[in-house]
Design a protein around this nucleic acid. Sequence first.
DNA 1: CGGCTGACTCTGG
DNA 2: TCCAGAGCCAGCC
Length: 116
Amino acid sequence: MVSLEGSSPGGGLYDRIYQVVRLIPRGRVAIYGQIAAYVGRCTPRQVGYAMAALPSGLDVPWHRVINREGRISFPRNSSAALEQSMLLQAEGVVFDESERVELDDVGWAGLLADSI
DNA sequence: CGGCTGACTCTGG
DNA sequence: TCCAGAGCCAGCC
């Protein structure tokens, strides 16, 4: 477990979000809503805002964060989307013909399902 | 100092 | 079944 208490509650919400994103294991992906639920007192929108405001230099696996559809939240032809998919595939994440990932397989919740 | 914008998701009509 | 609105923090001009 990670001590989220180290962060200032109420202030520095983004930092807590970054902390949670950092918990996503390699080869797994998490959706915005899942991160928001994990952080608590947070909406998926907030996570999106945090990702958009993600400063460079932090060891945050931002590419492991995708939307609820299992799809990258960037325009298909954008360089950011290409880089994200490239990073994910480098970790073993497989995209189908619709460029979507099987959340039941590589989803962060898959860790829990793995225990069952 | 004020207002705009930005990587989402869910519910109602 | 599809569209539209609401919820919401932080950085920047």
